[in-house]
């Protein structure tokens, strides 16, 4: 089930350094939301706070709330491992597990989360996930070959299949196409349009056309200067952001005046 995400007064730190200050937003279920902005503005950092991946980095910490259908994932006593099972993530560079076959890559989440699962059940999940990731046709006859032997675009779709195999409610994507060629990018974008039926998707992208093509809502992040914290400048319907933004900085960024 896709879920609503709300960020409330988020202040995100690396050690003592305030990287992103006072971010507030609401992301509707079954929608695609794009985070755009210049490098270093904190959009990936914000994305990583949404499934508690930020705190994996030594010294990193978060203040504020992230509500998933009203439940704060940062409430004390909440297990970050459980949060990540609900909120999946796809990374910038395709990162299939090198020691595992295509099949095992997709099955990894389920196998490592819960141990024993019936083979027939696992087979079904692997096929369904690979079909959802639009990769089944290309790999069905070589499921026991290493995942690292696929092309970059295929590897990224394998990573998406791996992420959705554990049935999350939300899918976070951190520049999922930046290492891919245009054809593979198109395949991933088509996939995102299909996936939003079942998931809430948040995608960080440097490609503004991509944001315009696939997202319903767009959030523009910026930072005042070097050493200053990043901030959420505005968030609106993608149409509005790209045609009639409220903030001058958004307009400057969209029109290519900087960044």
């Amino acid at each position: 089930m896709a879920k609503r995400i709300e960020g409330k007064n988020l202040n995100i730190y690396y050690g003592k350094f305030l990287a992103v200050s006072n971010v507030n937003f609401t992301i509707a279920p079954n929608s695609v939301t794009a985070f755009i902005g210049p490098s270093g503005c904190g959009k990936s950092t914000v994305l990583r706070t949404l499934n508690r991946m930020h705190e994996v980095i030594a010294g990193a910490s978060v203040q504020g709330k992230v509500l998933l259908d009203g439940d704060d994932i940062y409430e004390s006593g909440i297990d970050p491992v459980a949060v990540r099972r609900t909120i999946g993530m796809v990374f910038q560079r395709p990162n299939p597990f090198p020691t595992m076959s295509i099949y095992d890559n997709v099955a990894a989440g389920l196998k490592l989360q819960s141990g024993r699962i019936r083979k027939s059940e696992l087979d079904a999940v692997v096929e369904k996930s690979l079909r959802s990731a639009n990769l089944w046709g290309e790999v069905q006859d070589r499921l026991n070959k290493p995942g690292a032997g696929l092309s970059g675009g295929q590897q990224q779709r394998l990573c998406i299949a791996r992420a959705i195999a554990v049935a999350p409610d939300v899918l976070l994507m951190d520049e999922p196409c930046s290492a891919l060629d245009p054809i593979s990018t198109m395949a991933i974008e088509d996939l995102i349009r299909v996936l939003k039926k079942d998931y809430t998707i948040v995608i960080v992208t440097h490609n503004m056309q991509q944001a315009a093509r696939i997202s319903e809502r767009t959030a523009f992040f910026n930072l005042a200067g070097v050493g200053q914290p990043g901030e959420l400048v505005e968030m609106d319907d993608t149409q509005t952001i790209f045609t009639n933004p409220t903030d001058k900085r958004t307009e400057d960024y969209i029109s290519g005046a900087f960044g």
Binding site: M53, V56, V81, R84, R85, G88, N95, A108, G109, V166
Partner: peptide
């Protein structure tokens, strides 16, 4: 062992010790 693999595993909701046992150690075997 690239950190990306650890993060990929964490993002699947795999606990740290299992990430080390099933992802990191086999990769470095």
């Amino acid at each position: 062992v690239p950190n990306e693999l650890r993060e990929a595993s964490y993002a699947l909701g795999v606990p740290k010790w299992k990430t080390i046992a099933k992802i990191v150690l086999p990769t470095a075997f």
